[in-house]
């Protein structure tokens, strides 16, 4: 049988369908989980920039429950930001930000207190920066710098300074060795904040008091 001309064709066909069906079956099993992971990555980013909602080691289902219960969906009034409310009072906003990073789009969330000035945190749920360099933006050492920084009213909202520079209230240190990622991220953040704040002022008819 092995000498027949059709044997290689049939053999190839049988092998391909055999392995393909296993892979397709396997992907059906994991498919739902992969999709859930994508949603969860976003929800986790939102929770981690809002005060008091996120701690390490929380289970997946608990994270999802918190997101559904505590975070209100964005609407026109909040300028497309998610909001955290406590007994009707807005505590903080979580504004999704995105833009082109060094290699691929960076997507993240930045948290701002109800005073529209103080940053509560920043998190990223999609990025493809260089591992060990640009990808350090997802590490706590970089992200925790943003907490309690104040959006500056003049010039750039937030500044990324060289790692050796002194920091003011609106400055954070850039990632060492990742100039490009830092420059682009600075731009993404500032564009998003500027746009959001002006929209917010328009829809709510009140500028930021300075």
């Amino acid at each position: 049988m092995r000498d027949k001309w059709w044997f290689p064709v049939v053999y190839m066909f049988v092998m391909t369908s055999f392995f393909s069906s296993i892979v397709i079956g396997f992907s059906q099993v994991t498919g739902a989980r992969v999709e859930a992971n994508e949603h969860l990555a976003f929800e986790k980013a939102v929770l981690s920039v809002l005060p008091g909602l996120f701690n390490e080691g929380t289970s997946r289902s608990e994270l999802h429950r918190r997101f559904v219960e505590r975070v209100s969906s964005p609407d026109k009034k909040t300028g497309d930001a998610y909001t955290l409310k406590d007994s009707g009072q807005t505590i903080a906003y979580a504004l999704p930000i995105s833009g082109q990073g060094f290699w691929a789009p960076i997507k993240g969330v930045i948290g701002i207190k109800a005073d529209l000035r103080t940053i509560t945190g920043i998190a990223f749920y999609e990025q493809n920066e260089t591992p060990g360099l640009g990808a350090q933006i997802t590490k706590n050492t970089f992200r925790s710098q943003f907490q309690d920084k104040v959006i500056s009213s003049a010039g750039k909202s937030l500044n990324m300074k060289r790692p050796s520079d002194m920091l003011g209230t609106s400055d954070v240190h850039a990632v060492t060795g990742a100039t490009q990622t830092s420059a682009r991220l600075e731009r993404i953040i500032n564009d998003a904040l500027k746009k959001w704040l002006s929209e917010f002022a328009q829809t709510n008819g009140e500028g930021r008091t300075q």
């Binding site: 392995f19 892979v23 396997f26 992907s27 992969v34 992971n37 994508e38």
Partner: peptide, 25 residues
């Protein structure tokens, strides 16, 4: 190639489902 590809896809799917951060890394 088919056989190697098969195992690689399995690895990729497992990582995507159970360790998404590593998968993007």
């Amino acid at each position: 190639t088919l056989i190697i590809g098969f195992y690689v896809i399995i690895v990729d799917l497992v990582l995507k489902a159970y360790w998404p951060e590593m998968s993007t890394n």
